[in-house]
Design a protein around this nucleic acid. Structure first.
Lengths: 138, 138
DNA sequence: TTAAACCGTGCAACGGAAGTGCATTTATCG
DNA sequence: CGATAAATGCACTTCCGTTGCACGGTTTAA
């Protein structure tokens, strides 16, 4: 718990109770979460607060936003040392068509792609869809 | 014009006036279009019709849906011989951070990715974001 | 040919999610 | 303690995707 406080402070985010709880919630979940998920988990909290908390976390590099093709923004904690903004650091995401969960495959980086002349890459997003470990029965 | 009719019929879609127009519009545009784009282009047509037309087109393999990370579904015509459903055929998409346009890079396929044990890939989506040819000034 | 079935289209409305403005509370600093 | 800024909560708006229903034209079957 104290660790979370420290983590937030290191990223220059004030460790309020709400923020610590949200961080904790995301740390326990191993999958990417949507705003609605957090909303349901914390019935007490207002959606706006959660919304802005996620925005703040994202700006400060605490979480990264994931677009898994469901048209619902998901978020996941950045691994220690994750530099989302650097292209080489971009890992891919896996979305399960069965359980509808999205996970970070942190170890799997997005392969380098050669673009046509004139195109400049700044960011990349790769989502693989299929059946996840849990649902495939290994 | 007659060609479009034929194309639609070949895909077992009845070539109504509306559908031909929409097809024509998408063929002329070289970028992926959102429902709203079409809506603005055809002020007369109802949103629902366009929506369902796109759905139909998608089911019949005339267009493919593109998720470029803007949380707005875009659509683009399939190239002749495009088999969107087959993983090997998946091309990548480029979204320009400047002009906000999304294009298909049909020639650029999504590289094969090794997944952890237990994960089964069925589909993939790769979007590169950056500056497009037009905006980079070559 | 006429009736029935089907399909395409249009109108209205709903629901979910993102986002904004403003008031209020809470924390920080002098 | 008081002033200032940050965080939170409430209300509301907008946008997009989606659905239900009704009308009209076209196709199909008797």
């Amino acid at each position: 718990m104290k660790e979370i406080e420290k983590t937030l402070e290191n990223k220059s985010v004030r460790p309020t109770a709400m923020r610590i709880l949200i961080y904790k919630y995301m740390a326990e979940k191993e999958i990417a979460v949507a705003l609605t998920d957090i909303e349901n988990a914390f019935a007490k909290a207002d959606r706006t607060t959660l919304y802005r908390t996620l925005k703040t976390f994202e700006e400060k590099g605490i979480v990264h936003q994931i677009d898994d093709g469901t048209n619902i923004s998901k978020y996941a904690l950045c691994e220690p040392g994750c530099n989302c903004e650097i292209e080489q650091d971009l890992h891919l995401h896996f979305h399960c068509n069965n359980c509808d969960e999205t996970v970070c495959l942190t170890e799997h980086k997005i392969p380098q792609v050669n673009l046509p002349d004139g195109y400049v890459a700044e960011d990349a997003n790769l989502v693989i869809k299929g059946i996840c470990e849990k649902c495939s029965g290994r």
